[in-house]
């Protein structure tokens, strides 16, 4: 029983990281229709930037995020302006391939700047173990789960009530119609990239605080794909929830089925979901079948 509880707890922690990264994917896909293959690299780059800020100014967690998030948003905006905006009107395939190219470039640059060695980075979060219901947690783990909860709630409220969020949903539903009622579609695209980069930075810093800040952090982006698919590519909240599910599934596979299955269990879920319910658990059902 204890073993199961531990598996569930650590599953929820890594799942929260998947959920956060997946939210970033879904936000961009929802409003622009592009899968951003560079999301993992965005997570990595912003985490490294935050690490440099942390080691230069020795900030504690919240001030650190207060500085990191605006920088990340600026990076997101710059990427959208420089690489995605000029591709407007090209086929989706071309835009997605640009994000693939962007991914390898960002990854290479990040590794070349900060070097191939991993860093320990606690992001100014205390390290005393806290016990919750008999299961020991590190504060960083609780921060991660807390961040997912707060961002999910904030994301829901934003998309439901705020003017910008409603405009974003309108663009997702029908770009031309949104343009006709006076929504600036290009601005919505830019905002989607900015918010997505902000979420990526939160995910990156908290992931690094929980595990390690290493050059393979970008891989978490690909590992979060199962969550995006399971939740539905255009469902921001769904992706967050699905992230937790995938994290738990991975840990249960690891614990009960076999070592080494952890990494691929998520991808097996992708294949199954795409065969049974390609639009995911919460996504909108508009995939045409031929």
């Amino acid at each position: 029983m204890d073993f199961l509880l531990l598996l569930l707890a650590s599953g929820l922690v890594s799942g929260a990281a998947y959920g956060l990264i997946a939210m970033g994917f879904a936000l961009i896909f929802k409003s622009t229709g592009v899968v951003n293959f560079a999301q993992g690299e965005l997570v990595m780059l912003t985490a490294y930037i935050s690490f440099t800020l942390y080691s230069t100014f020795d900030l504690s967690f919240f001030p650190l995020m207060l500085v990191t998030i605006p920088i990340s948003m600026a990076i997101g905006l710059a990427l959208e302006r420089l690489f995605i905006r000029p591709m407007l009107g090209e086929p989706i395939f071309a835009i997605v391939m640009v994000t693939v190219g962007l991914a390898v470039v960002l990854r290479g640059i990040t590794i070349m700047i900060w070097g191939p060695d991993p860093f320990n980075f606690n992001a100014g979060i205390p390290t005393e173990v806290v016990e919750l219901g008999g299961v020991p947690f590190y504060p960083a783990q609780l921060y991660l789960i807390g961040a997912l909860a707060v961002l999910t709630a904030a994301g829901w409220a934003f998309l439901r009530f705020s003017r910008m969020g409603i405009a974003m949903r309108a663009v997702a539903a029908n770009e031309t119609a949104a343009l006709l009622v006076g929504i600036s579609v290009s601005r919505i695209h830019a905002i989607a990239w900015m918010l997505s980069a902000a979420i990526a930075s939160i995910a990156g810093v908290l992931f690094a605080a929980n595990f390690k800040l290493a050059p393979d952090l970008w891989f978490q982006g690909l590992r979060s794909f199962p969550a995006v698919i399971l939740g539905g590519m255009d469902s921001v909240i769904g992706s967050a929830v699905a992230g937790l599910v995938i994290g738990v599934i991975e840990n249960l596979f690891q614990g009960y089925v076999g070592q080494g299955l952890r990494e691929i269990s998520g991808f097996i879920v992708i294949v199954i979901v795409l065969m049974v319910r390609p639009f995911g658990l919460f996504g909108s059902r508009d995939i045409e079948r031929v």
Partner: peptide, 21 residues
Amino acid sequence: VPSLRLKGLYLAITTLAFAFI
């Protein structure tokens, strides 16, 4: 076979998953 119902981005992700598996 599982990809027959999918196209575009979904197929790209399935093939990516396949490579990892």
